[in-house]
Design a protein around this nucleic acid. Structure first.
Length: 344
DNA sequence: GAGACGTGGGC
DNA sequence: TGCCCAAGTCT
């Protein structure tokens, strides 16, 4: 079994370790929150928001006591809101018990998968755990000379075996060092092999195939969408509606009423009337196209149009609000459109 | 196992 | 500007 040279890795890590906010105090809750935030999200974006979230919710109990809307608001800018819903659900499930240390107990909490369970065990409890994220996966893939994707079952199995054979009994710095190595040195593009403490033992380096072992996953096809949003105002207030709490996409967020349509949809009075009907309104004059914006949300590429829409009738299932009294998170689509459309 | 799930920042 | 990515999890 090939082994990672732990002393060389640890020496490198001691020199190169970045000072990141979540590395200041390693409580299980801080590790859980930060690892959740860092899923598919850049270090720079998380670094700006982590401490603020921790001030609002310093303990699992604090998050459990908050509403889902408050929790989502604190998550704004991070995306993948399912993560904060899961975090809160996990805190609720915990009750008064401490964050668990055993892998099976961690895996039982919502939003905690193999990576996050291992990260909590290693970073919070200093256990030897197979902390394999995309960084570590890439390091090990190259180290072992595997050219398939790191996250396929057979490569992962070998990776776990290498880690088991290599990790010291106290696994925190070893695991974190390997991750840091993937982030700073063994990068997907242009890896800095001369700076790598694993170079003497690296299979990909030996065969000069480091560049070839970069796996990239293909992106889901982008769907082109026409987004139509109505700005309906009365007495200085604007009408907002809330997305369903069980929606797959952006659950519970607030937005201007409207719809996503096929890209070739014609925006005319008939369409606007159709959008108004479920709100209990009828069109009461000419609508005006007052802004356009572009926005992408996961696999949807939106061309957004803001329509200032005069109405009559009675509304339902919606709220009149001034800008400064929004009840929660606005969708970015609506936020961009209102920014582009100014106040009118 | 593929597809869905967001956003801000880099180039 | 437009396209790409970034410490996964769930279905």
């Amino acid at each position: 079994m090939k082994r990672i040279p732990a002393p060389a890795l640890l020496a490198w890590f001691q020199e190169q370790r970045r000072d990141l906010p979540w590395r200041k105090r390693r409580t299980p809750w801080r590790v859980w929150v930060s690892e959740t935030m860092l899923q598919q999200t850049t270090v720079a974006v998380v670094a700006e928001r982590f401490e603020k979230f921790m001030r609002l919710f310093p303990t699992p109990a604090a998050l459990a006591a908050a509403t889902e809307s408050e929790a989502t608001l604190a998550w704004a800018g991070l995306g993948y809101y399912r993560r904060v819903r899961n975090l809160r659900a996990g805190a609720l499930a915990l009750g008064k018990r401490p964050v668990p240390r055993a892998e099976d107990d961690l895996l039982g909490l919502p939003g905690i998968g193999p990576y996050t369970a291992a990260a909590i065990r290693a970073f919070a409890f200093d256990e030897p755990a197979a902390v394999i994220d995309a960084n570590v996966g890439r390091v090990l893939q190259r180290f072992m000379g595997e050219e398939g994707a790191w996250n396929t079952a057979p490569v992962l199995k070998k990776a776990r075996a290498v880690l088991r054979a290599s990790s010291p009994p106290r696994g925190r710095d070893f695991s974190e060092g390997l991750m840091e190595l993937g982030a700073l040195v063994c990068t997907p593009k242009d890896p800095a092999c001369p700076a790598c403490p694993l170079r003497p033992d690296c299979a990909a380096h030996a065969t000069q195939r480091v560049a070839e072992t970069t796996t990239r996953k293909r992106r889901a096809p982008v769907r082109q969408i026409e987004a139509v949003r109505l700005r309906i105002q009365r007495a200085g207030k604007t009408l907002f509606v809330q997305r369903p709490l069980d929606a797959d996409l952006l659950p519970g967020q607030w937005e201007l009423p409207g719809a996503w349509c096929a890209r070739d949809t014609v925006i005319d009075a008939a369409l606007v009337a159709r959008l108004l009907r479920p709100l209990g309104f009828r069109l009461a004059g000419e609508f005006k196209r007052s802004a356009v914006a572009r926005h992408s949300v996961t696999t949807h590429q939106l061309r957004c149009t803001l329509l200032d829409t005069p109405v009559r009738g009675r509304m339902c299932r919606a709220r009149w609000l001034r800008k400064d009294e929004l009840p929660g998170t606005l969708t970015t689509e609506t936020r961009k459109l209102l920014l582009a459309g100014g106040s009118s």
